[in-house]
Nucleic acid binder design. Structure first.
Length: 679
DNA sequence: AGTGTGGTTATTTTT
DNA sequence: TAACCACACT
């Protein structure tokens, strides 16, 4: 990524083009962030558009942060005032907050994460008597389907009419109940943060005009990752004026399985006839040999816009392919190779990245790295907010802000143990339902003693009183963090963590996590530029959308080898990259072969290759442990797609007589044929 | 309400 | 292989 402020001709053209809709096809490493940030500065300084009328949208908090930082270097504080650079979701959240009166939400609404939504669905299914055994699978399906429907802007009533199977009908019904539930809790899920604003702008002309007027110029990053709802939102915001720049790369679309529609790039051409397309093909990252490999691989995919990366960095080192005996051997060779390379070339650990398809592949690497005492950083895996202790503390806070948040209530009512079991909760739920109360308000209701044993009723009253007390004290406190700490302590939660922890180390991590949550709340309060955003309510709500772990990790800018999945590697670059597990059924992944979505796997391969600046090493294993069983592997088809004369093979090239299951072999053969036919 | 056992099952996961 | 979950037992 070029940090210099000098733009090349194409980049300059993209910056200056403001008279209509623009699509920038930004190849990997072509300096797209520079174009976006420079363009924002250009719009303010040269075009005289005030910053508060410019909106830039990204997908990750990290991207938004980086963009803000870089714009900050180009514009003065005064010039940048009111500029909106945020993720789609944060933008949606802000819109919702400002347009509450047009929405079925009250001002203290909660944002539920995937975990909360799962609980709600589980609850609904039980009530619906949809059995318990296969429920887990069904819930996963339901979550996926509901999210798909939402992202396609299909409301529950419409969902019924698009059903193809009996199961779909069930799920549509579940979707309807789920939506009703969220509204009753005064809560939204992540998808709602996009979908609700979109629908509002669709249906309400007045609000739409207001926002179109406010967003005079829109910039969208990673456009290839937008889903239908997001694209619709973009269209509604830019209106007929079409004053926007979309930056994207269809070759780096690797989130289709999550609803992203790379076809949105082609749609743009149809929806805006005067769309200007500028290609950024000069790559500032990699050697030309690496780019040749990348171009060759991606050349096997169909393209709407043709694009070929080039660089003036010279040929560079040859690309190595190492065939290993098995996964242990692979990890060992990669790590040893890395150490040797580092010592011989005087590099740092952080110059190296090991990329893989699935998180499970990190395990062997970790063992190996630990054995060799090499510092490493594992990204991905469990997110900060998925951790139980964080979710628990957050639930206390959510309940304070929104007493209707039953999801939060259920999470903490018996954490720490308050002798409130499932029987009590069922009765409480029934009582709440009959009287249309939330679980928390129901808990403080005096009539409760008529339906519950005395002890249970007292426990619930006590809990409700506890929350009420702290609600009163917290909401008008200028320094809420000490109060929060006091509340969590008095709730007995800290003691609970101490007792619960299996090891002293685990106890420490958990307590540290809680501490860093406090710190983050404090930071958010300090950093809020708006008085309106300083209050604890809006801080807590924002917190759900942030991944603090990411921030934490970034702050400790230490020298460590990077271990990441190919997905997590997108947008990053490293001087030396190892891509491991280049085998059929792994990359491309088994399920993708079956689903015939090889193209997306190929893009994943492309993303991996283009992360490397100077050195690229690919490895594969002849055998791999698969659920305790050693399995014979076939080299990935993508290896055949590489320019063979740029490669250097190490280890045994040909595999020995494999004992492949004949059925599998037949399937393999079919898949290969299909791939050939597609070309 | 909390512990233990056996059976099942393995992608990717920006918010 | 190991992690996770449901269910049964104490």
């Amino acid at each position: 990524m070029s940090t210099g402020s000098q733009l090349n001709d194409k980049q300059y053209e993209a910056m200056k083009y403001v008279q209509g809709p623009l699509l920038v096809l930004a190849g990997a490493g072509s300096g797209k962030t520079s174009v976006i940030t420079q363009k924002i500065a250009y719009l303010v300084k040269q075009c005289g558009i005030p910053a508060y009328r410019i909106t830039a949208m990204t997908f990750t908090n990290k991207a938004a942060r980086e963009m803000k930082e870089r714009v900050g270097k180009l514009l003065s504080r005064e010039e940048a005032k009111g500029l909106s650079v945020s993720t789609f979701h944060t933008f949606g959240l802000n819109l919702l907050r400002l347009e509450l009166k047009h929405l079925p939400l009250k001002n203290n609404f909660s944002i539920l994460d995937a975990d909360d939504c799962k609980r709600i669905l589980m609850d609904l299914m039980q009530r619906d008597n949809l059995s318990g055994a296969e429920s887990k699978e069904l819930i996963a399906k339901a979550m996926k389907k509901i999210s798909d429907w939402k992202n396609d802007l299909i409301i529950p009533e419409q969902a019924h009419s698009v059903c193809e199977t009996v199961e779909d009908v069930q799920l549509a019904h579940l979707y309807q109940l789920y939506e009703r539930n969220l509204r009753a809790y005064n809560a939204v899920d992540f998808d709602d943060l996009i979908v609700m604003p979109t629908r509002l702008l669709q249906e309400n002309a007045e609000v739409r005009e207001k926002w179109q007027n406010r967003v005079r110029y829109l910039l969208v990053d990673e456009y290839q990752d937008t889903n239908t709802a997001q694209y619709t939102l973009v269209k509604l915001l830019v209106g007929v004026m079409g004053q926007f720049t979309a930056v994207g790369d269809d070759d780096q679309s690797i989130y289709a399985w999550r609803g992203a529609k790379p076809e949105n790039m082609a749609l743009l051409k149809e929806d805006f006839h005067n769309l200007n397309v500028i290609k950024l093909e000069q790559n500032y990252r990699s050697t030309s040999r690496i780019l040749k490999a990348a171009n060759a691989v991606i050349g096997n995919n169909p393209h709407i816009f043709d694009k070929k990366l080039w660089s003036d960095k010279g040929h560079g080192e040859t690309i190595r392919i190492i065939t290993c005996l098995n996964d242990d051997d692979e990890a060992e060779r990669v790590v040893k190779d890395l150490i040797t390379h580092k010592l011989m070339n005087g590099k740092s650990w952080k110059d190296y990245a090991i990329l893989y398809r699935g998180n499970f592949q990190a395990r062997v690497l970790e063992t190996q790295l630990r054995q060799m005492q090499i510092p490493y950083k594992l990204s991905g895996g469990q997110s900060f907010f998925a951790r139980a202790e964080i979710k628990d503390v957050m639930s206390y806070l959510r309940l304070i802000i929104n007493p209707e948040d039953d999801s939060a209530f259920l999470r903490i009512i018996n954490t720490p143990k308050r002798a409130i079991g499932p029987v009590t909760l069922e009765k409480l739920g029934l009582f709440a339902q009959e009287n249309t109360l939330s679980l928390l308000t129901a808990s403080s209701d005096q009539r409760l003693s008529m339906v519950l044993p005395k002890k249970a009723a007292t426990q619930l009253h006590e809990f409700a009183d506890f929350i009420a007390t702290f609600t009163r004290e917290l909401l008008d406190d200028d320094e809420p963090v000490p109060k929060v700490r006091q509340m969590i302590n008095e709730a007995g939660y800290i003691d609970y963590v101490r007792e619960q922890a299996a090891t002293p180390a685990q106890e420490k991590t958990k307590l540290d996590n809680i501490e860093s949550l406090y710190t983050s709340i404090q930071n958010l309060i300090n950093r809020a530029d708006d008085v309106d955003e300083k209050n604890i309510e809006s801080v807590i709500r924002k917190l759900v959308l942030l991944d603090l772990l990411e921030q934490q990790q970034e702050e400790e800018d230490t020298d460590k080898v990077n271990l990441l999945t190919l997905h997590a590697a997108k947008g990053l670059e490293f001087p030396y990259v190892y891509m491991i597990g280049l085998e059929e059924e792994l990359l491309p992944h088994k399920n993708s072969i079956a689903a015939e979505t090889i193209e997306e796997e190929r893009r994943l391969m492309y993303v991996g290759i283009t992360r490397a600046r100077q050195g690229l090493t690919l490895t594969l294993a002849e055998q791999r442990k698969n659920g305790g069983q050693m399995r014979q592997m076939t080299p990935s088809r993508f290896l055949d797609e590489l320019p063979q004369d740029e490669l250097e093979w190490h280890g045994r090239k040909k595999k020995l007589a494999p004992n492949v299951d004949p059925k599998e072999q037949a399937q393999q053969h079919l898949a290969n044929l299909r791939a050939l036919l597609k070309r």
